Computed example of a mutant assay.
Amino acid sequence: MSPKPTVAVLDYGSGNVHSAVRALARAGAEVTLTQDTDTILNARGLVVPGVGAFAAVMDALKAIDAPRWIGRRIAGSRPVLGICVGHQILFERGVEHGIAAEGMGEWPGEVTALPSDVVVPHMGWNTIKAPEGTQLFKGLEEERFYFVHSYAVQSWDFDQTIESMHPPKVTWSHHGADFIAAVENGPLAATQFHPEKSGDAGMALLQNWIETL
């Protein structure tokens, strides 16, 4: 039997990380909750969770130099999975209550409030529209996933004019407006929803990701 792939879950003070740790272990990974640099850089996969405000999560990540570690993994084609606000901070910036904060800028886009004419937070199960060739949603295109958020990226403007580049695969959902539910971009992937709270569908998605490690 081959050894389980190692997955580091970034420990930077974000709440509710233990449910993600348990879910990844059930999905077949050897999981460590850590902020140790060597473990983060050398694990087969890194998961960046996140709950709360965009700016607060970025501040907490910067406090332990996590953006540099995440960037080094991406540059070395080592898989990273962001979840919820861990998905949002990969975009250029977030705007909450009129205050803008810079994100990591791996993808273009701004995290903004969902439309005011719908109930927020968007809390509960929702469908997704996955692109062709998706790895994360392989066999899960008709499933529902569990969301808890009031902000999202609601447009995508990625420069796809470079012929040698494989454009990211973008998955959408809808709550008052279309918003980005997930992105797959080489070693970097992220979901706005919580796979660890999404029952069998979320477990299967984590297994799909672990298969890429």
Rank of each mutant, 00 (worst) to 15 (best):
M1R: 15
M1I: 15
M1A: 15
K4C: 13
P5S: 12
P5K: 12
P5R: 10
V9I: 14
L10H: 11
D11I: 08
N16P: 07
V17F: 06
V17C: 07
A20Y: 00
A27E: 03
A27G: 03
A29H: 05
E30I: 00
T34V: 04
T34H: 01
Q35R: 15
D36M: 02
T39H: 03
I40M: 14
N42D: 14
N42S: 14
G50C: 00
V51M: 02
F54W: 11
F54K: 09
D59L: 12
D59H: 13
A60E: 11
L61Q: 04
A63M: 10
I64D: 02
D65N: 13
I74R: 12
I74W: 01
G76C: 09
S77R: 14
P79C: 00
L81F: 11
L81I: 00
G82D: 05
V85A: 04
G86Y: 04
G86T: 05
H87Q: 12
Q88A: 06
Q88D: 09
L90H: 05
E92Q: 15
E92F: 09
G94F: 07
V95P: 02
E96F: 12
G98I: 03
I99R: 14
I99Y: 08
I99N: 13
E106T: 10
W107R: 02
W107F: 15
W107V: 01
P108N: 06
E110L: 07
V111N: 07
T112Q: 10
L114K: 04
V120L: 12
G124L: 07
N126C: 00
A130G: 08
P131L: 02
E132P: 05
G133V: 07
G133M: 08
T134N: 05
T134W: 06
T134C: 03
Q135W: 07
F137T: 02
F137Y: 13
F137M: 07
L140S: 02
E142Y: 10
R144V: 10
A152L: 11
S155A: 15
W156K: 10
F158M: 11
Q160L: 04
T161G: 12
E163K: 14
V170S: 09
V170N: 11
T171V: 10
W172L: 07
S173L: 04
H174W: 13
H174M: 11
H175A: 06
G176F: 00
A177L: 02
D178A: 11
F179A: 06
A181H: 07
A182W: 03
V183M: 08
V183P: 01
E184Q: 11
A190P: 01
T191S: 12
T191H: 12
E196Q: 08
S198T: 08
A201F: 14
A201K: 14
M203D: 13
Q207C: 06
N208P: 02
W209R: 06
E211L: 12
T212K: 11
T212G: 08
